[in-house]
């Protein structure tokens, strides 16, 4: 049975590898000069005063796709919350205070504010420099969890009222939708970047609605990561199976 499966895998894998190599041989050469979509995306981004072209692609030219991406994230978080809820045969134990080595504690508490501000900076400068809502949101959310390393789980739970983060996740998704609908009300297409003035190139307020959508995504990603990690950590730290069930 197992040998047969391995043989089947070898045949299928060899076929797949051959097809992939054939496809690679037909692709345009690596590092070529011809990038028609890229050139047009750069033109469109510069026309709308967005210095970071990738943000312009994500939140202006393909803002509608980012809405889908955000919905995937939201749905996945919802799925995890449902899957990782406390079951009927489980109970919650209070997490015990843990001993933390002093250098770890000192370093974690020192880095926490720096990491948090870095995350917010990356979100705020998404339209100017590399980064944006997705990256900055993850940085800001992980910064909070330094408290778990530096102190203990109880301390993390005190600064992390889960309901607030779940609400802000939903509010951020709504904010994105409302921004999209606002452009419909203004008489253009859904999520079209024509609502706000484009501003001065390479300043914080440039890019029209890009910074706003960026902020909404940053808020959503940060809350989503906090909620996700909270449920996984709850499983590891707090939720215990009933004895003898």
């Amino acid at each position: 049975m197992n040998r047969l499966r391995l043989w089947l895998l070898a045949v299928g894998g060899a076929g797949l590898a051959a097809l992939l190599v054939a496809a690679c041989l037909d692709l345009p050469g690596f590092g070529g000069r011809r990038h028609p979509y890229g050139d047009r995306a750069v033109q469109a981004s510069l026309a709308r005063h967005t210095a970071n072209t990738i943000s312009s692609v994500n939140f202006d030219q393909r803002a509608y796709d980012t809405l889908g991406e955000m919905s995937i994230l939201f749905a996945a978080v919802l799925g995890c919350v449902v899957l990782l809820r406390q079951a009927r045969d489980e109970h919650r134990d209070r997490p015990e205070p843990a001993e933390v080595a002093r250098p770890v504690r000192r370093y974690a508490l020192l880095v926490l504010p720096v990491a948090l501000v870095t995350g917010l900076y990356v979100v705020a400068h998404g339209q100017l420099s590399p980064g944006g809502g997705f990256q900055g949101g993850v940085v800001a959310a992980t910064a909070l969890h330094l408290l778990y390393l530096g102190a203990d789980y109880g301390a993390l739970e005190r600064v992390r009222p889960l309901g607030v983060y779940e609400t802000s996740d939903a509010v951020a998704v709504c904010a994105y939708l409302v921004l999209g609908l606002a452009s419909v009300l203004a008489g253009t297409a859904f999520l079209a970047n024509t609502l706000l003035p484009y501003g001065t190139f390479n300043t914080l307020s440039s890019g029209g609605t890009v910074p706003l959508l960026n902020a909404a995504i940053g808020m959503e990603v940060a809350s989503a990561v906090v909620v996700l990690l909270a449920h996984f950590l709850d499983q590891a730290v707090e939720i215990e199976e009933e004895q003898g069930s």
Binding site: R33, A41, L46, A51, G132
Partner: peptide, 23 residues
């Protein structure tokens, strides 16, 4: 493809569309 520290057109930039797709 980030123009906060290079002048547009002064240097070639890689394709931003696939970078956004990667994100």
């Amino acid at each position: 493809p980030v123009f906060s520290d290079i002048a547009p057109g002064s240097r070639p930039v890689v394709d931003p569309v696939v970078q956004a797709l990667t994100l």
